[in-house]
Amino acid sequence: MTRIFAYYSLGFVFILLQTALFPRFLPFFLKPDLLLVLIIYLGLNENYVRGGVLAYLLGCLLDVFAGNYLGLYGVACLATVFVVRGVADRLNTESSLLLLVLVFCGTFLQGIVLFFALGLFADAGPLLALFFGQLLPQALLNLAAALLLLQVVSALQRRFAPRSELPGLRHLNNRYGS
């Protein structure tokens, strides 16, 4: 329960940063998707049911602050977490580098899911040019944000909880002392 609350609180903080802080110093309507990093992390470290429910609820929370379609990001986050969970068994999920690669690929995956969900179910207008013109810069921005976030989390962990381990974040490195 504490973990679920922690995920949700973190998601809320990320959304607040995206809506109120980033627009003050980033170009107009181009901001890193920190919530995607959290969704990818969920996919790597939680099972299908818990990860799916959490991702869907976080997506719905994002829908309150993004766009005009409640449930759209819920679907996109659910799809993302399931795909990540599906490939996670074949990958070394303890490597933080994997998280970066998945964030980059996850941006494209989420963009495609959003595009089809909007195109098939809503009268969302000329989306193709908007989505595909902005996907690569968005992916690079998300990658940079994920890298920065990893550095910050690792530094905080070393400073305040050196003995504890966040699943999936340099777990192997700590265990084998490399």
Binding site: A20, F29, K31, D33, L62, F65, A66, G67, N68, Q134
Partner: peptide, 14 residues
């Protein structure tokens, strides 16, 4: 205006 849209795909403000 106190906030912008949380995503880069939509154009809304609060």
């Amino acid at each position: 205006v106190i906030a912008e849209d949380a995503s880069s795909w939509f154009r809304t403000v609060v």
